[in-house]
């Protein structure tokens, strides 16, 4: 597998949200606007790259029986670091995302890639895999956030383009489920067209 295809497979072919359906909780919970979705995506990307690289470094020394708890502790450590950085430099985004930042620990994508990819590949490839998966996650979150923001509050990336309110239900809980369902349908159509 070439280096480039390791990165790009995460974006379309194995998109973590739209294809593998991993990490749906932050996807639905944080995408009330495009900016929030993107922030959540980038925070997860940072954790993915760091934990993938570190786990691929230490995978050979961990006994198979305790590997899952060990991976979780490694991931939790990186999440705490990212949490600190966001608290210091992006306090408003940190406040909006709230609980979902510490919950990156239990995001199935991170543990899933550690187990499926990082534990079997070298450090560079694992880092690239984390980057690709993270970008796929970020793209899906940004698109979902953008759709919900445009429909729900009539703005895009914080710039309002209509007067008054949008269709409020799209920024509330039910809109998250319905918007994700339709994006998934369109993505599957698009994917079957190109292949």
């Amino acid at each position: 597998m070439s280096k480039l295809s390791i990165v790009t497979k995460g974006i379309i072919k194995e998109n973590p949200i739209l294809v593998l359906l991993l990490g749906t909780c932050p996807t639905l919970g944080t995408t009330t606007s495009a900016i929030n979705g993107m922030g959540m995506g980038l925070a997860t990307t940072a954790v993915l790259i760091l934990s993938n690289m570190f786990i691929s470094m230490i995978a050979g020394y961990i006994p198979a029986k305790v590997r899952i708890p060990s991976y979780i502790v490694v991931i939790a450590a990186f999440v705490t670091i990212v949490q600190f950085i966001m608290q210091a430099y992006m306090p408003s985004l940190y406040a909006t995302l709230g609980l979902f930042i510490p919950l990156i620990v239990v995001n199935c994508i991170v543990l899933g890639r550690a187990e499926a990819f990082a534990s079997k590949n070298n450090v560079l490839d694992s880092g690239l895999d984390g980057l690709g998966m993270g970008l796929g996650f970020t793209c899906a979150l940004t698109v979902l956030g953008l759709v919900r923001e445009i429909l729900g509050s009539g703005s895009a990336f914080g710039h309002k383009f209509i007067d008054g309110d949008g269709i409020l239900i799209f920024v509330l809980a039910p809109g998250a489920f319905i918007a994700l369902a339709y994006i998934m349908v369109l993505f599957n159509k698009f994917k079957s067209k190109i292949s």
Partner: peptide
Amino acid sequence: IPIALVTAGILAT
């Protein structure tokens, strides 16, 4: 999954 998500949306409503 998509129809399950739409159903969940209605349940959430």
